[in-house]
Structures are given as structure tokens and as C-alpha cells.
Simulated scan of single mutants.
Amino acid sequence: MSCGKPHETDCSEVLEQVWLFLDHECDQERRRLLEHHLDECSPCLERFGIEEHLKVLLRSKCGGDHAPDGLKRRLREKIRETVVEQAATTVQDGAEPR
């Protein structure tokens, strides 16, 4: 996704990392870049609001329980594998990234 305007951080990159931002799992520099982008990009801010609302809803329905560290680790590994696979497919096919 792109709003069509030039930004220091690309819209698709921001939206890929919105969960890391919401979970405070990115370093301060990345957080600053994401905040700056969200401040100047209405479409991403709108999408961020939806994601933030979903996270609050999930937290309230799941009773605030935290996932076990092992589950978090496995999920992160699977997400990384999927991102690498998608990137490799994009390069092989010569298609535009999603």
C-alpha cells in the first residue's frame, strides 16, 4: 500500500511493522520513524487506528493473558520465514511486492 506521497519510510513498510510498534517491540529509532510517518500520512494513520482498535479488542477478550515465550518465538520465526518466502517469490516472478 502507498498513499502516493513520498515519505522517509514507505507506507508498506510502516504497515508491515505496525504490530511491532503497537507492542513496543521496535527500537527507539524505528519507533521514531514510524511515529513520524503516522503523523504525516492519513491513510496509514487510519489503518493504524483500525489495527490499534483490534489489538485493544483482542486484549479485552483474551483477559489480558500473555502468550508464552515459546509461542512468541515460534510465531516470530514463522512470520520471518513467510516474509522471506514472499520476498523470494517476488524476486523470482519479477512481480511488485505486496
Score class of each variant (00 low, 15 high):
2 S>L: 03
2 S>F: 01
3 C>D: 12
3 C>Q: 08
4 G>S: 11
4 G>I: 07
8 E>F: 04
9 T>F: 02
9 T>V: 06
9 T>I: 03
11 C>Y: 10
12 S>G: 03
12 S>I: 02
12 S>M: 04
12 S>R: 14
14 V>C: 03
15 L>Q: 03
15 L>R: 11
16 E>N: 09
17 Q>M: 06
18 V>Y: 12
18 V>I: 10
20 L>G: 05
24 H>S: 10
24 H>I: 04
24 H>F: 06
24 H>A: 15
25 E>F: 04
26 C>K: 02
27 D>V: 00
28 Q>W: 05
29 E>D: 03
29 E>H: 04
30 R>H: 06
30 R>L: 06
30 R>E: 11
31 R>G: 08
31 R>M: 11
32 R>V: 02
32 R>F: 05
33 L>A: 11
33 L>R: 11
34 L>S: 08
34 L>P: 07
34 L>N: 07
35 E>V: 00
35 E>T: 03
35 E>W: 00
37 H>C: 01
39 D>R: 13
40 E>N: 08
41 C>T: 02
42 S>R: 12
43 P>K: 09
44 C>E: 05
45 L>R: 15
47 R>V: 03
52 E>P: 05
52 E>C: 13
53 H>C: 06
55 K>R: 15
55 K>Y: 14
56 V>G: 08
56 V>S: 13
58 L>P: 01
58 L>K: 15
59 R>T: 09
61 K>H: 12
62 C>V: 09
62 C>G: 15
63 G>I: 04
63 G>C: 04
65 D>W: 14
65 D>F: 07
66 H>F: 09
68 P>Y: 13
69 D>W: 12
70 G>R: 14
70 G>D: 15
71 L>H: 12
72 K>Q: 14
72 K>Y: 07
72 K>E: 14
73 R>M: 11
73 R>H: 15
74 R>Y: 12
74 R>K: 14
75 L>C: 07
75 L>Q: 11
78 K>T: 07
78 K>C: 08
78 K>P: 00
79 I>N: 02
81 E>G: 00
82 T>L: 10
83 V>G: 01
85 E>F: 05
85 E>Q: 10
86 Q>C: 07
87 A>Y: 04
87 A>K: 13
88 A>P: 00
89 T>Y: 14
89 T>C: 08
91 V>P: 00
92 Q>D: 13
94 G>T: 00
95 A>T: 11
96 E>V: 10
96 E>F: 09
97 P>A: 04
97 P>Q: 06
98 R>H: 13
